[in-house]
């Protein structure tokens, strides 16, 4: 075996066809250089980037995820999909943080098709950032398999998040400040805790139990959750018939 090689991160990039992908092309045409970490997936609009794409990329141990769209109000499409990208990114960062993933591993930037140099600058900066964070999981101090299972639980929850976003988490003002303000607000924080965190915990409990039946204590330890919280969720899950308890109070997933 060769000695330890230099750490080269992998960044999965979702680039919109009309602006950021064009910017990346122009960057190439102009021969601006950046580190070879990025792996590009071309989409027509940054608003096509599903929360599930982000979680899947991290679950597959991406060291960074990059989303590149048109500048706000310059989206090629009428519905201004880059606002969706902004909302999704802020939501994903919040969930990632809760899962123990450094949210700085996810970055959203606006790059126009004429901004080859800007694409290089953004890539150089983000590449350095991701590199400084080290391999996925290392700066988090959490085992990768554990992170993967947490991310899978989050992926399970995506349909639910989409529903909740539509019904309860609508952003009132469609500007960049409006989004930042809303996602940083107390109101959002409360709604997030109330609507998403509990579900996320339950989703994680279910994933854990599907692997093997364990006790409430083991659950709380394995998932790093507060025992009271675990007890409450177990009650709810049992109420919905998703789990049952055997004679030794070991929890078993029924579905």
């Amino acid at each position: 075996m060769a000695g330890p090689t230099e750490y080269k991160p992998t960044i999965v990039g979702f680039l919109c066809n009309w602006c950021c992908y064009g910017g990346a092309d122009l960057c190439g045409v102009s021969r601006y250089q950046y580190p070879p970490y990025l792996r590009v997936i071309r989409l027509m609009c940054s608003g096509r980037v599903d929360l599930a794409f982000i979680f899947r990329a991290f679950a597959s141990a991406a060291d960074g995820v990059f989303i590149g769209g048109c500048h706000l109000n310059d989206c090629h499409y009428n519905p201004e999909g880059n606002y969706d990208a902004l909302g999704n990114t802020l939501m994903a960062k919040r969930i990632l943080k809760h899962l123990g993933v450094n949210p700085e591993r996810l970055r959203l930037e606006w790059v126009s098709a004429g901004e080859g140099i800007r694409f290089a600058e953004v890539m150089n900066d983000f590449s350095n950032k991701v590199k400084s964070l080290g391999r996925f999981g290392s700066s988090e101090g959490i085992d990768r398999a554990e992170l993967k299972s947490r991310l899978e639980a989050a992926t399970q929850l995506v349909p639910y998040v989409k529903l909740v976003e539509r019904e309860r988490l609508r952003v009132p003002v469609r500007t960049e400040e409006g989004y930042q303000k809303f996602f940083g607000s107390e109101e959002f924080n409360d709604l997030f805790n109330e609507l998403i965190l509990d579900k996320l915990a339950m989703s994680r409990i279910m994933s854990f139990l599907r692997l093997k039946p364990v006790s409430a204590g083991e659950l709380s330890e394995g998932l790093g959750l507060n025992p009271c919280e675990v007890a409450k969720h177990l009650d709810d899950l049992a109420g919905e018939g998703l789990i049952s308890f055997d004679e030794n109070r070991i929890c078993v997933a029924t579905r």
Partner: peptide, 13 residues
């Protein structure tokens, strides 16, 4: 127009 925003919003795929 093929932007796919609806796809990203659809909870059930």
């Amino acid at each position: 127009k093929g932007d796919g925003l609806c796809n990203a919003k659809c909870p059930t795929g």
